[in-house]
């Protein structure tokens, strides 16, 4: 067996083992983080306040937004709901 072929085989064994070790770490770390978070910080994101319906939006603001959307989309778009991005 030539030296170069031996080097190739070494690269293959070391490379594949390292990839598998790192992916095992990915799996292990992922599971550990999930268990830790589930135990100590189980609450999900706070539920967002229900979106304001167009009726609750200031009519002047509504008209300006609708006009801007109509201008940008060439009259094809329309406003379905308006939400405040926190």
């Amino acid at each position: 067996m030539s030296e170069e072929f031996q080097l190739g085989l070494t690269l293959m064994v070391v490379g594949m083992l390292t990839v598998l070790v790192i992916l095992s770490l990915v799996v292990g770390l992922g599971n550990t983080i999930i268990l830790y978070v589930n135990r100590f910080f189980p609450e999900g994101e706070k539920k967002l306040a229900p979106a304001a319906s167009p009726a609750q939006t200031n009519p002047k603001h509504m008209a300006v937004i609708a006009a801007a959307v109509a201008e940008l989309t060439g009259g094809r778009g329309h406003v379905v709901k308006i939400e405040k991005d926190s």
């Binding site: 190739g8 690269l11 293959m12 799996v27």
Partner: peptide, 19 residues
């Protein structure tokens, strides 16, 4: 997460072609 291992197996092409 366990499906992540298959991302490792699919690297075999790198080393096979290297050889």
């Amino acid at each position: 997460l366990r499906l992540a291992f298959f991302g490792g197996a699919a690297q075999i092409g790198i080393f096979a072609v290297l050889l």
